[in-house]
Amino acid sequence: MKELTYFVACSVDGFIAHHDGSHDGFSQDEAYLNDLFSDFPETVPTHFRDALGISSQNKWFDTVLMGRKTYDVGLKEGVTSPYTHLNQFVFSRSLPTSPDKNVELISNDAVGFISRLKDQPGQGIWLCGGANLAATLFAHHLIDRLILKVNPFLMGAGIPLFGGEIQQTALTLCDRKIYDNGVVRLHYRLT
């Protein structure tokens, strides 16, 4: 059974992006990014992989899930298939069709679709963004791991880690890494 990991950067106060979807304030430190890209090469968008010369095999994931707002970040820049090295799924009720043949649009029954996806063989599933999708998947106990890249700043307002109320849940810390730039990477398993 595939594990689903919500792997995302957030501010200390728990926001994954500003209201407009921008990511100002998140670390762009070269040493931090090089380490992150070494540990999780598949999380680097294809156009950056090519530019940075990253050709590593996928270590953790073979599938990426994106909410509509997450997908729109690249789409605004003309990137219609951000992760060609992964199976890509975008979840949206408002997007009429997928703008790219390599990105499958899921417009209903996200829970059923992801439950079936988790039963398939292969590497893990990466939820790279989508606060509303994360809240839905959490409510249906479909998230197995939470990996947070907690950046050392307070955003004050924005898009929260989960786009709605979630129930209190105990987490088990599996791993952690503290970077010189102040980012703390925390790996949790949901218990």
Rank of each mutant, 00 (worst) to 15 (best):
F138I: 12
A139K: 15
Y6M: 08
W126C: 07
F89A: 01
Y188H: 10
D24N: 07
T46E: 11
Q123S: 15
L154K: 11
V103S: 03
V79M: 00
N151K: 06
R93P: 07
S56T: 04
R145Y: 15
S98V: 00
S107Y: 07
L148R: 09
D100W: 01
T172A: 14
G122T: 06
V12C: 10
I16Y: 07
A134E: 14
L86F: 00
R189P: 01
S92Y: 08
Y179A: 06
N87K: 11
I178S: 15
Q57R: 08
P45Y: 08
L65P: 05
M66N: 01
L133R: 07
Y32R: 03
P41W: 00
A110P: 05
C128A: 15
A170H: 08
G14E: 09
T63A: 02
M155T: 04
A17M: 06
F7I: 00
R189Y: 02
V8P: 09
P160R: 13
P152I: 09
K118L: 09
G182R: 05
L171W: 12
L171S: 03
F138V: 13
G78M: 01
T43D: 00
C10T: 13
E104G: 01
V111E: 14
N102D: 15
R49Y: 02
Q167K: 14
K118M: 05
G156R: 13
S115Y: 02
D175R: 06
N87Y: 01
L133W: 13
G74I: 01
H19D: 14
I16D: 10
P82N: 02
L137I: 10
L65G: 03
G163H: 13
L95V: 00
A134V: 14
F37K: 02
L161N: 06
V12L: 15
I114T: 12
